[in-house]
Nucleic acid binder design. Structure first.
Lengths: 341, 341
DNA sequence: GTGTCCGATGACAACGTTGTCAAAGCCATT
DNA sequence: AATGGCTTTGACAACGTTGTCATCGGACAC
């Protein structure tokens, strides 16, 4: 009601209600042992002053320093995979009254270190990490100090921690084999920055699938270090200019597949060059032809990640868990185009 | 190094370094007036104990109760519009060392109230809100207590606050007029829950455009209260079963446009029924035909929102600002299909 | 009337930090 | 040797809250 500056504290409420601070605390926390009449008087003062509980102060006083916060450091909150993951984590966290501090790493190692430091400083109760660094030894002191970390999408290196990842090698084998089985022999492979483990594994699967058939992949058709859809588009554009261009494309990430589709489309090759993408995304089924993909079940991954973290928060002391989710091949059309020659 | 339980505090560091807590504080905060030798000794103890600054305690002591946090309550963090917005906010916040607490409202009013309460309890310095309630009077005590709120995408009701919105009526007029100009007279209109202001405005624009041409929109082709792509798909499916089905569709939201495209595609009508969507989304240009949309510049909206909030955090006391961004028509093909009869 | 018990209430310290202020040490000056 | 000024350091209180414990007053039994 009144024109206050700043927030009312328990002290203010106590003064208005004519009781001690402790009694206000009891009322606010719904503790027993307060006379009904007093409780009402306090409640009235709370309402009149728009008192709001101060969680940070409360947490500071209450043991352990639990903040009711968890951090989620993902590749890019604006990207559909990270966004879906974040959403999934949020739903799991909400049930526990835990809030999520999210941030995007953009594959920048330095940012990961900075942000982790920031989150520690904020005393998050736990951390979900899709790392951009190639080693995470720097986390060991935090883990030792009791902050559980669950890695998602990429496995930890240099530190023992829980992880939820996808069987990338196998998925890539599946996708590549799908193309090989249709007779493709000049298959392009597009992958991410080479120090990202998923990129390595998917490339590995690509090679493995060839090897299993006794086929040698053409190195000139393998392009690594691609960041973002524009890079994927440019790379495919270059490949199509070769003397013997690829008849199929295996794209190691959803944004690279999107770039590839753009490049093909621009040359009118959308229906003649096959393409299989790793990671499904919204609308992939509405493209022409619909995109054949290796799907990772994001919702499931998010839930498993959250469950793991929640278990740790609740005191689970088992050795680090390593959960690996099987991806599935979703046949839609783009991957079933036969080789053009 | 040692197997600690819990975190080291300044007290521990002080004990190890043989100085007072206050001196540790000085070193940690890089304050002047500490002898070089002492500083080194303290720094050494900090490293040995893996001491980490406790931001919440620090903020508690340092007046004002600034938490270095802002809240972002969006419609659905997993949806491309909200996700892009969140990302944009994040980039602006990072520059100030502010972290973002994000959550999804899913158009549920109750969740908005709960989450706002939770954020207040966490003493966020400011709030970005894409409301799911139809009135936000309940926020006035928080605003009075000094928490700046910036509304995004939807204007505030029942409270004076900053907002960054899109010229929805005009955008919808633009999109509808585009269809009318090509001779369409049976245009379906799909919109969101009717108590969401953007949905109302877009429907308004749809009607206005008709009126401007002296045409009467067919009420049976207007479907409101649609939530999510599946609802959009079902609605379009029903409309196509009518005696005189629509020759064009105006979809009031990106997910409804996606649902509409699915419905059309399933019946093989993708190339014969025109469609214009409100709000662009990734891959809209890769659909067949590419989707004509009314685009709202999400990045710009995010930046304007963040700028506004940041200004308030820095003490800006101007009367509430109302920023309205002009949407643009992006012609791609789906909206230029002529009427079938 | 005395003793006992119980519920209600408050004083106080503490969580981890930092602002304020005073004390201590040092050097130079008189 | 005493004074002044300076830098370095620490004791203490406070931020807003809650756990611990003591106190108070009344109801009850004897």
């Amino acid at each position: 009601m009144t024109e206050r500056v700043g927030r009312a504290t328990m002290r203010d409420v106590a003064a208005l209600a004519g009781v001690s601070i402790k009694t206000v605390s009891r009322v606010v926390n719904d503790e027993p042992g307060v006379a009904e009449q007093v409780r009402m008087r306090v409640q009235d003062a709370v309402d009149r002053l728009d008192y709001r509980h101060h969680l940070a102060a409360s947490n500071l006083r209450r043991g352990g320093g639990r903040s009711g916060l968890i951090g989620a450091l993902l590749q890019d909150v604006g990207n559909s995979f990270s966004a879906a993951l974040l959403r999934s984590l949020e739903d799991a966290a909400r049930a526990r009254g835990t809030a999520i501090l999210s941030a995007s790493l953009d594959e920048e190692p330095e940012r990961e270190r900075t942000l982790v430091h920031d989150l520690v400083t904020r005393r998050v109760d736990g951390l979900v990490l899709m790392p951009s660094t190639d080693r995470q030894d720097y986390l060991s002191s935090e883990v030792r100090a009791g902050m559980p970390v669950v890695f998602v999408d990429r496995e930890p290196r240099g530190i023992a921690a829980d992880s939820v990842t996808v069987e990338n090698v196998e998925g890539a084998v599946m996708g590549t084999e799908h193309l090989l089985a249709q007779g493709h022999r000049r298959i392009a492979c597009l992958t991410d920055l080479p120090d990202i483990s998923t990129a390595q594994q998917r490339l590995q699967g690509f090679v493995d699938a060839h090897r299993a058939r006794g086929v040698h992949p053409d190195e000139r058709l393998t392009v690594t270090g691609l960041r973002g859809p524009a890079a994927g588009e440019a790379a495919v554009s270059r490949l199509l200019d070769l003397d013997r261009p690829p008849t199929a494309i295996f794209a190691g990430r959803n944004d690279l597949a999107q770039g590839a589709v753009r490049a093909l489309r621009r040359r009118g090759l959308g229906d003649s060059v096959a393409i299989v993408g790793f990671d499904d995304f919204p609308l992939a089924d509405l493209l022409t032809p619909p995109l054949t993909v290796i799907r990772q079940d994001v919702v499931r991954i998010g839930r498993l990640t959250a469950d793991l973290l929640v278990a740790r928060l609740d005191g689970d002391e088992r050795p680090p868990q390593r959960i690996v989710v099987e991806p599935t091949l979703v046949v839609r059309g783009s991957g079933e185009i036969p080789p053009s020659d």
